[in-house]
Structure formats: structure tokens, C-alpha cells
């Protein structure tokens, strides 16, 4: 059904050039915008994609002079890469999960409870972004040595959680604040338990914001390198740490390009998930759900 409805206008357009042209004129701005954005946003990334599949690429050819997959095999069979990739995905997952566990109750408190210094505490999380990080790492390392956290998974998780606090607290706090309280109150008035009200009314209302916070946290953690380096090595070597070292110091461009593409995969997958629900939502909305 859904495919049918969405396919119809397309077919019409294809069959009727006048209509197509009219539509095109109406959409001219959009088309121009998409083309320009495509060149500006996707263009630079195309060079990375091309390099990943290039055996050789010499100026002045617009595309690689020799295509091939040999660097994929060479890169993906590197022992450091095969070890780092699952580690990175797992680490980002754990950090995101733990960050949600400690931050979401806090953001609920910030939004719903009244205690002295509430606003001050909430705003102080801005400091996690304002102090140049590198100035802090050496002192942090001293602390971590005392706590026996250097080179351990808990150590890396801790240092990476710091980077997630801002997003994971601010976004949900606002979501909790923006809920229309009358809904909850109405439910309470008809005798629903607090837990039930939270699970069935509050939570669904904040889920979009929570999804956003979690998605962004996962992506930024997945790409974090400096904290992971100073605290993690030698036992914990994440993909971004590896990628920095390969991109900056490798005469062979292809290794870096392949790793970049591999690193994109998880976040693109997440985006695709969102995409799928876009369509799902469109369909259900079409049926009036």
C-alpha cells in the first residue's frame, strides 16, 4: 500500500514532462540547495571513499587511476584494527549506557525537584566543554594512577563519561521540563500509580529527546581519541586512537581512508535505523494512527 501511494506521483512525473517541469520550477530552490549542499558536504567525503577503493590516484584524474580492493584486505587484517573495532563499539555502548544511567535520574532531578543551587549545578556542566582538555590530562593521569585506573577499561569509561555529561544532562532536563504536567496530573487524579504514570505518560513523552541524547552521545564517544589515549594505552587501544596515528603518519593514504569508512559504519547504521522509522512513521500517519 505504502509503496503504491509513494510511487504514484513519481510515475506521473515521469510520464508527464510538463508536470515535471512545473514541479521542477517550484522546487528549483530546493534542487539548487540540495546540489550545493551535496557538493559542499558530501564532496569532501567522496575523496575519502574514492581513496578507499583506489590502488593508485594521480593528478589530474578526477577519479582514481586504478581501482581495487587490495587495501581493504590489508587494512582489515591488521591485528590492531581487528582488535580495536569491536573494542570501540563495545566501549561506546557501555559509556553511553552508563552515562544514561547516571545522567537521566540527575536530569529528572534538575527538571522536577527544587533544591538550592540547582541552576548553578546544571549550568556548571558547561565547564566540561570550556576548559581546554589537554591542560587537564596530566593531572588526571596522576589521579588515575592513584586509583589504579590507568590502562583499564573502567578508567577509559570514566574519562569518556565526562565528555558525555553536557549532552546527556541538558537535553533530557529540558525534555522533562517541557512535558505538559496536566497530563500526568490527570492520570494521577484518576488513580494511576506514580510508577505507572512515569512509565506510560512521562517516559514516552521524553523518548524523542532521550533518543537524540543517546544517539549523539554514542557518536561522540565513538570518535573520542585523546582521553582514550592518555588513560587507555597500552591495554585499551580504540579505533580513533589508531585512526589518528594512521592518518597522520602513514604515507599510504588508503589505510586511513579504509579505516574512516569502517568508522563511519556504526554511526551510519544508527542513522539508517532512524531513517527506517521515518518511513514507518509516515505509513502509520498515513493510516491516521
Amino acid at each position: 500500500m505504502a509503496t503504491l501511494t509513494s510511487a504514484t506521483p513519481t510515475r506521473e512525473m515521469a510520464l508527464n514532462p510538463t508536470l515535471l517541469w512545473k514541479r521542477m520550477r517550484r522546487e528549483l530552490l530546493s534542487v539548487v540547495l540540495v546540489v550545493v549542499l551535496f557538493i559542499v558536504i558530501i564532496g569532501p567525503m567522496l575523496t575519502v571513499i574514492f581513496w578507499a577503493f583506489a590502488e593508485q590516484w594521480r593528478y589530474p584524474s578526477l577519479v582514481p587511476t586504478k581501482w581495487g580492493l587490495s587495501y581493504w584486505q590489508e587494512t582489515l587484517t591488521r591485528a590492531d584494527v581487528t582488535a580495536a573495532l569491536p573494542l570501540s563499539i563495545g566501549l561506546a555502548t557501555i559509556v553511553t549506557f552508563l552515562s544514561a544511567v547516571i545522567c537521566l535520574p540527575a536530569s529528572y532531578a534538575f527538571a522536577r525537584m527544587n533544591f538550592p543551587g540547582r541552576q548553578g549545578f546544571l549550568l556548571s556542566f558547561l565547564a566540561t566543554n570550556a576548559f581546554p582538555r589537554f591542560g587537564l590530562y596530566v593531572s588526571i593521569a596522576v589521579v588515575f594512577f592513584r586509583l589504579n585506573l590507568i590502562g583499564t577499561l573502567p578508567g577509559v569509561i570514566l574519562i569518556q563519561i565526562v565528555n558525555t555529561l553536557l549532552l546527556m544532562i541538558w537535553i533530557p532536563t529540558a525534555a522533562f521540563q517541557n512535558i505538559d504536567r496536566s497530563l500526568e496530573e490527570a492520570a494521577l487524579d484518576v488513580g494511576a500509580s506514580r510508577v505507572r504514570v512515569f512509565l506510560q505518560i512521562t517516559l514516552p513523552l521524553v523518548l524523542p529527546a532521550l533518543s537524540a541524547a543517546i544517539l549523539l552521545t554514542f557518536v561522540s564517544t565513538f570518535y573520542e581519541a585523546q582521553g582514550a589515549l592518555i588513560i587507555g594505552v597500552p591495554n585499551i587501544q580504540t579505533m580513533p586512537v589508531l585512526m589518528y596515528s594512521i592518518i597522520n603518519s602513514q604515507v599510504i593514504v588508503q589505510y586511513g581512508a579504509v579505516i574512516s569508512l569502517v568508522l563511519w559504519l556504526p554511526s551510519l547504521l544508527l542513522l539508517t535505523f532512524a531513517q527506517r522509522f521515518v518511513r514507518g512513521n509516515t505509513i502509520s500517519a498515513g493510516f491516521g494512527v
Binding site: 534538575f110 521540563q177 533518543s211
Partner: peptide
């Protein structure tokens, strides 16, 4: 998602 994030960043923190 986009909106929720943006709202969060523009709207907060409202007074309790």
C-alpha cells in the same frame, strides 16, 4: 530528534 535537541538547547533551564 532534531527538534528535541534544539529545544533542549534553546529552552533550558526554565525556572522550576
Amino acid at each position: 530528534i532534531f527538534m528535541a535537541t534544539a529545544r533542549a538547547l534553546t529552552a533550558q533551564p526554565a525556572p522550576p
